[in-house]
Design a protein around this nucleic acid. Sequence first.
DNA 1: GACCAGGCACATC
DNA 2: GATGTGCATGGT
Length: 222
Amino acid sequence: MPSLKEIYDRLYNAFGPQNWWPGETPFEVLVGAILVQNTAWANVEKAIRNLREEGLMCPKRLYRLKDAELEELIRPCGYYRIKARRLKNVLRYLLKRHDGSLEQMFRLPIDQLRRELLEINGIGPETADSIILYAGNLPTFVVDAYTHRIFSRHGWVDPEADYHTLKEFFESQLEPDAALYNEYHALLVRLGKDYCKKRPRCQACPLEIYLPDGQPYDAWLE
DNA sequence: GACCAGGCACATC
DNA sequence: GATGTGCATGGT
């Protein structure tokens, strides 16, 4: 396979900078990381807009909001009841442990912060890493369904590989560079959305991954 | 109408 | 330890 750096360069040359995360502030990124779980971003935008318009993009105010009201505001992004609970769980941690200060939270060593986030009910590995990388601008690689799908369909990783294995796969071959990790993950999502859907649809290319000019993506990367 | 989307927790065997 | 299921809206 091509080196991870080369794959990155080719993706960057093809798609350009993705300007992630699409959130105004670190706190919005944190909120978005919960709301986007297994959900299309377009739906999350509506929920975030609702919170913003109500002036609720603030840890304390959001935490004090009644569950029923929070649920109603985030309803457009789906799983709204469980996500309301998960949001409250993170907010409780943020307020009690860090006095509501993200800045303070991100002063923790990355590994420790990651462990603490993973103890929160509703925060799994991808959400924890997304918060650390995209809200904290700290170098931890974010793995998601697209990452797994793209790399396993190419035969570059074991299809059975779990989150931690994929994360190590990237971090062991790339410098710990937050800007690089940020752009890399965003580019993989872009590639996945455009060319690597969940269910393969085209017989001509076993990978079902194509570039805008119709050339198979796998050939393009060789 | 079926399928999909930037997961995660929990029940059951 | 592995496998299955609930959570839910909105776009294609």
